[in-house]
Design a protein around this nucleic acid. Structure first.
Length: 426
DNA sequence: CGAGATTCATGTGAAGTATACCTTTAGGCTTAA
DNA sequence: AAGCCTAAAGGTATACTTCACATGAATCTCGTA
């Protein structure tokens, strides 16, 4: 208790000093910047519309899919358990958006007519709250208002907690598991098996599962029992083409910008850029948002082609920066080591080399290095994140190793290095 | 010359360990009768 | 004596380590033509 108190006191002192210093330094120049912002009319009407989290009222070119989902889940309004659904398709094809859209509508009707319906949307993405069996169940239990600890309890206990909360009253429960493939890749399909089976044990409530996956082959690796029960219905989302993307962007642009800020030709170009890859609407929206931000910051009244080109470049650079920022410390050091030798020697390196360099970096920062075994796994994880490219290759007589090369483009390296060295020095 | 054995350097799975955190429980302290 | 607080005990998940065996093609070995 006493130790904690003093620590806290010190922290406050440091914080206070730092704050006043910064404030004095920055104050005068800030005033000018702020004033220019007030004078100039913003090109945005409602910037949130371009945010990925925003859910529009209109979802163009997905009417068919939405109707499909809705007609399957609709039975829940008659208190009949809907079929489980498995939704799959490439990233940025609107899977999550459509699912949560239908969920929202269902919820509204359910509330209006006081139908006992509970909906839960959980993202199982790695590094998020629900990427293990325990964490998924804990999150579910929390959704039902039961406060459970992050660790310490047996998984069966959490399972029971969720089960009890869910079964409290007669109702239909819709659980949407986004990026379900990542969860299964990390800890197997046992969770899903349990969840699909839980219905037989529930007395009052009934659970319906909706799995969303980016991985098209995900179902094949599943336990056949889970596979058949999870995919009672399957819905495939095909990528958008350039024309569809344009419609989506037009829809959003109408809401996001003030009038005559952006021309239709510019939007077409945005759509064309994004369609070039694989019809990723997320990317198209990002492109539009970033170019608008650039234009706004530049003081330009209109968005033009140059902004889009700049945005394209910036996104390409920042894509990696964002990922790197959220990396745990050990992985940052590993990545820093990787970047340093890979930019020094112009060839692919192997696990042993990288591990040695990594160790020297650990010593430099005074951090205990992890074992090679763990590093091997981490390299694979960085590969999954698209930061490194690690391919297992055999050199016959000369052993077998991962051939590692950098996935990050040269231009982003500087930016990433800044992030990498910063926290490690503390 | 070619089939099969060998080899290397690491991949990979499983079991074990350390850490952080949770609940339960027992003992001590406080409070009120 | 009842109620509350605290610390220890007993238990778990997670991240990591240790151990042991698996991999896979270049190279070596040796029998055969």
């Amino acid at each position: 208790m006493i130790v904690f108190g003093t620590l806290f006191f010190n922290y406050r002192k440091i914080y206070k000093v730092g704050f006043t210093w910064n404030f004095l330094m920055v104050q005068s120049s800030l005033n000018n910047i702020f004033e220019s912002f007030i004078e100039r009319k913003s090109i945005f009407q409602n910037k949130d519309v371009l945010n990925l989290k925003f859910s529009p009222e209109n979802i163009p070119h997905r009417e068919k899919e939405i109707n499909q989902i809705a007609s399957i889940l609709g039975t829940s309004l008659r208190l009949e358990k809907p079929s489980n659904i498995f939704i799959y398709g490439k990233p940025g094809t609107g899977k999550s958006l459509c699912a949560s859209f239908v969920l929202l509508q269902l919820n509204q009707i359910a509330i209006k007519k006081s139908i006992p319906l509970k909906t839960v949307f959980i993202n199982c993405k790695l590094g998020k709250i629900a990427d293990t069996e325990y964490r998924l169940l804990a999150q579910l239990a929390r959704e039902f208002g039961k406060n459970v600890p992050n660790t310490g309890l047996p998984t069966s206990e959490i399972y029971k907690a969720f089960y009890n909360e869910a079964d409290k009253e007669k109702r239909i429960i819709l659980i949407i598991l986004d990026e379900i493939d990542q969860l299964v890749k990390k800890c197997g399909d046992e969770v899903l098996y349990n969840l699909t089976r839980i219905n037989q044990e529930l007395k009052r409530a009934e659970i319906c599962l909706v799995g969303i996956s980016n991985d098209l082959n995900f179902l094949n690796d599943l336990d056949p029992r889970v596979k058949s029960s999870l995919s009672e219905e399957e819905i495939f989302f095909s990528p958008y083409d350039a024309i569809q993307l344009k419609d989506i962007l037009l829809e959003r642009a109408k809401l996001a910008f003030n009038e005559s800020v952006i021309g239709e030709d510019i939007i077409s170009k945005c759509a064309a850029y994004a369609a070039r890859e694989h019809g990723d609407a997320r990317r198209a929206l990002d492109l539009l948002r970033v170019s608008a931000e650039l234009a706004d910051r530049n003081g330009d009244a209109k968005i033009n082609e140059i902004h889009i080109d700049m945005a394209e470049e910036k996104i390409e650079k920042d894509k990696y920066v964002e990922i790197v920022k959220t990396l745990p410390e050990q992985k940052k050091i590993l990545l820093e080591a990787g970047i340093s030798i890979l930019s020094e020697v112009n060839r692919r390196i192997n696990t042993g080399e990288l591990f040695n360099v990594y160790k020297t970096y650990c010593i430099k920062y005074g951090i205990r290095p992890l074992t090679q075994r763990r590093i091997s796994n981490m390299i694979a994880e960085l590969d999954m994140l698209g930061l490194l490219n690690a391919k297992v290759t055999s050199f016959g007589r000369y052993g077998r190793t991962k051939e590692i090369s950098l996935y990050i483009p040269r231009e982003s390296i500087d930016k990433i290095n800044k992030i990498l060295t910063q926290p490690a020095e503390k």
